[in-house]
Design a protein around this nucleic acid. Structure first.
Lengths: 140, 140
DNA sequence: ATCTTAGAAGATATAAAAAGTCTTTTAGGG
DNA sequence: CCCTAAAAGACTTTTTATATCTTCTAAGAT
């Protein structure tokens, strides 16, 4: 239960890699994909999404590629995960009030809300800077 | 992300219903399914699993059916969820040590372990008795 | 004993989501 | 205008979720 998808995993690897690079150095998608061992076409899709919401910046044409969208310290793991996996919702009934017809009587509802809150809270405290900190195993 | 499947939802509804009934009253699967609005064949599969690990007790033949396996106060939501959805694992790499080849350098690893721990802790504190407490909306 | 009831077990079917690829288009340099 | 690299969207494949159906077994009723 609660497993991150490949997409989520790849997304994190990719953006953490970007976060570990100097902001003035534009990275080729193909290079990033190779470095973090992700299918390039798949990572392309993910980075397109990220680009739209400003998590990364993209440049086309010769000398193009990607850089991180803003200071890695200002990007949380929560943001990255929710961008790619959608909101963290342990159960349909926790999406919004009134979703579940059994709502009023539903004794589990508050439990799921609590789970949601805790998980979000944990992921929110982790920044890309934290994650990129000792990425010494990846090529410089 | 992290969404419970239908199976998990149905399982909880079904067993909470059972937990709300007197232990000496054997319930027909078809009645339970109708009461909690779950496809009977699907619930059958779920209860078969539960029966194997003692979460419910089953009786065949005339007058047969299901009762709760033990005191609802001794059954946690965690147990029920993991029985039906498998272990709570936010990421492959958190399943066991050494799973992930990037392990040593992986800065996210501890984050997932923390998520796992917190979620399990929340679900462990909730018992079927808690959940069955005010199931007043369900037919007596 | 055999018939009916009700769950057990396993096979099968359908549908949805995840994972990945391919093609065409657009933007930016040389 | 040609090359490079990302954007966008269609498409394919694989896997998982969701469910149903059939046959088998246990237990009580006749």
């Amino acid at each position: 239960m609660m497993e991150l998808t490949r997409k989520g995993e790849y997304a994190i690897r990719g953006i953490v890699y970007l976060a570990s690079r100097p902001m003035d150095q534009v990275c080729l998608l193909s290079d990033i994909a190779a470095a973090v061992e992700v299918p390039p076409t798949f990572l392309a899709k993910i980075f397109q999404q990220f680009s739209k919401i400003g998590l990364v910046k993209s440049y086309r044409g010769t000398g193009g590629g990607f850089i991180i969208g803003r200071d890695p310290e200002k990007i949380t793991l929560l943001e990255v995960v929710e961008a790619v996996e959608g909101p963290i919702v342990p159960n349909r009934c926790a999406i919004r009030e009134g979703e579940c017809p059994r709502d009023a009587s539903c004794t589990i509802h508050p439990v799921w809300l609590n789970v949601q809150k805790q998980v979000r809270s944990i992921l929110k405290k982790v920044t890309l800077r934290d994650l990129a900190a000792n990425t010494t195993s990846l090529p410089t």
